[in-house]
Design a protein around this nucleic acid. Structure first.
Length: 176
DNA sequence: CGTGGAATGAGGG
DNA sequence: CCCTCATTCCACG
C-alpha cells in the first residue's frame, strides 16, 4: 500500500510512500494527481486498528513535522539491506549528516576511501529520499545532482533539482 | 579558463 | 568487455 503526501510549495509534486505492515519499502517523487484531495487524506486522524494503519499514521505525522520544522528527526522503519555493502555504507553516512549541513561527494569519498563518482552513484540508488537525506550531498562546485537529474540534464517532467534546492533551503543549509 | 584522462562501483547491452 | 553515471583532481595548452 502507499500514500501520497503533497510536497510543500508545489501543487505539481507528491511524495509517494510505499509500505507494508512493518516498514517503508520505497519513497519517490511523482507528479501530483490533482483529481483527488490529498490534503484531506494527509490530515486524517489516528487509526490504530491495524499495524499498517499505525505505520501510516506515523508516516503522515513525521512528514508533517519535518515540513513544519526541518529539525525533525525521522524515526521510521525501512529496509536497508537491499543494496551492496558499499551502498549501505554510503547510506549510513548520509543519515549522520544533520539538517542544515551538507557534505560534498568528495568529502564522503575520502571518509569511505572511495571516489566521488562512486559516492554519487550510491546516492542515486537511495530508495528513501528525504528520510535518508541524500539531498545533503552537494558537489564541490555547486548543488550536484538529484534523482538522476543534474544542472545539465533534466531526465523527466519533474524538476528534481528544484526539490533538492527546496529541501536545502528549508533546512537553511548554505549552498552556492 | 577548457579539455581529457584516471579513479570508483554498479548496472546494462 | 564497453559504456554510462547525482564527481573530482591534476596535467596540459
Amino acid at each position: 500500500m502507499y500514500i501520497n503526501i503533497p510536497f510543500p510549495n508545489s501543487e505539481q509534486i507528491s511524495l509517494s510512500v510505499s509500505f507494508t505492515d512493518d516498514f517503508i519499502t520505497r519513497i519517490e517523487f511523482i507528479a501530483a494527481d490533482l483529481s483527488q484531495d490529498e490534503w484531506v487524506q494527509y490530515e486524517t486522524v489516528d487509526d490504530n486498528s491495524s499495524s499498517a494503519a499505525l505505520l501510516e499514521t506515523q508516516i503522515k505525522k513525521q512528514f508533517k513535522h519535518y515540513f513544519l520544522n526541518s529539525e525533525h528527526h525521522f524515526s521510521l522503519p525501512y529496509q536497508l539491506d537491499k543494496g551492496t555493502e558499499f551502498q549501505q555504507k554510503v547510506w549510513q553516512a548520509l543519515i549522520q549528516i544533520p539538517a542544515g549541513e551538507v557534505k560534498t561527494y568528495g568529502q564522503l569519498a575520502r571518509e569511505l576511501n572511495s571516489s566521488p563518482r562512486a559516492v554519487g552513484n550510491a546516492c542515486r540508488s537511495n530508495h528513501y529520499p528525504v528520510i535518508i537525506p541524500c539531498h545533503r550531498v552537494v558537489s564541490a562546485s555547486g548543488i550536484g545532482g538529484y534523482a538522476g537529474d543534474t544542472l545539465k540534464s533534466q531526465t523527466g517532467s519533474i524538476a528534481f533539482l528544484s526539490i533538492k534546492h527546496w529541501l536545502l533551503a528549508h533546512e537553511k543549509a548554505n549552498i552556492k
